[in-house]
């Protein structure tokens, strides 16, 4: 579709599309939005590596295809390793990889494929310093298999294997801080982003492309199916995750932390604001909410300190 120049001027996101309509994501899917933004930022000179996850389906079953870019489907835990192999091969063939006009190798994996089963391959990829971008689209559970908890599932959440029940058997661990694990590898660039703030996400994607070496972005991606939330509330929920400091937006660049807008704008809202729109949190007791709030406060204070000391 041709977009008139007058409209293009007002756009805050790239007009080009390499992720087409007709894909098979659920309504209100944050991941499909995220992948669309990735391809807007990187264009078609991109090789996307996708492990077994929702995006395997979203990208289309044979002979259909949603992406106007190279796409490589691989096993659940192999994203980091396959990206490494592709990047090495491209370099061996003489391609410019990453940077201006470079070919982009992008890992696009969910939170289960990153925080849990794919953590080892991610670690290897980061440690070896490959020129590629790994994006963890974080919908906080194994959604493609039917909503099972992952290391990235927050405290108090209902999933099909933390079903609550008479024994109040909800998720009892706080969300694994994958980005902290990534930063421990002393990567040149790591950032959080949210589908509710696409301009910020695109800016970070571009930075991740420019900076040599491995980059990592953890993208907050609501899943109405798994979160038991209305499909038209995904963006609102993602926005509230940031506004409550449950999922603050920040960057780690060459050893320096920077908290990004709008996380810097005002004091965080109470966590209830984020929780109340989602059915997955409806079994939480007042005490559960307090426990989660204390964790959010603690992590937020920690981040502010990091930005203050290493800003």
């Amino acid at each position: 579709m041709e977009i008139p120049e007058s409209v293009k001027k007002r756009l805050t996101l790239p007009a080009e599309e390499h992720f087409y309509a007709g894909h098979t994501a659920c309504q209100g899917c944050g991941a499909s939005l995220g992948l669309r933004y990735v391809l807007k930022a990187y264009g078609r000179k991109t090789i996307v590596v996708i492990p077994a996850c929702c995006s395997t389906i979203i990208a289309g079953a044979w002979p259909y295809n949603t992406l106007d870019a190279n796409l490589f489907h691989t096993a659940f835990e192999t994203t980091g390793a396959v990206m490494s192999g592709i990047e090495a091969a491209l370099k061996a063939m003489g391609y410019k990889v990453k940077g201006e006009d470079g070919v982009m190798v992008v890992g696009w994996a969910g939170d289960g494929g990153t925080a849990d089963i794919g953590l080892q391959a991610l670690s290897g990829f980061l440690e070896r310093g490959h020129d590629a971008v790994y994006i963890m689209y974080d919908n906080e559970a194994y959604m493609n298999t039917g909503i099972q908890r992952s290391g990235s599932t927050p405290y108090g959440a209902w999933t099909t294997n933390t079903p609550g029940g008479k024994r109040h058997f909800l998720e009892k661990r706080h969300k694994k801080k994958v980005i902290d694990i990534v930063i421990a590898h002393e990567v040149p660039y790591a950032a959080t982003a949210s589908v509710a703030y696409p301009e910020d996400f695109i800016k970070k994607l571009r930075k991740a492309k420019e900076i040599p070496g491995p980059s990592f972005i953890q993208l907050f991606s609501p899943c109405p199916t798994g979160w038991r939330s209305p499909t038209d509330k995904s963006i609102e929920i993602a926005r509230l995750a940031v506004q409550t400091a449950y999922f603050p937006l920040f960057e780690y660049e060459n050893g320096k932390y920077r908290i990004n807008m709008p996380s810097t704008r005002r004091e965080p809202k109470p966590i209830e604001e984020f929780l109340k729109l989602q059915g997955r949190f409806k079994y939480m007791t007042r005490e559960d909410v307090e426990i989660l709030q204390r964790w959010v406060n603690h992590e937020w204070e920690k981040l502010k300190k990091l930005a203050e000391v290493f800003g």
Partner: peptide, 10 residues
């Protein structure tokens, strides 16, 4: 897995 990626890249 890296060999698979590299081989698939050509």
């Amino acid at each position: 897995s890296a060999c698979v990626g590299a081989s698939a890249a050509g």
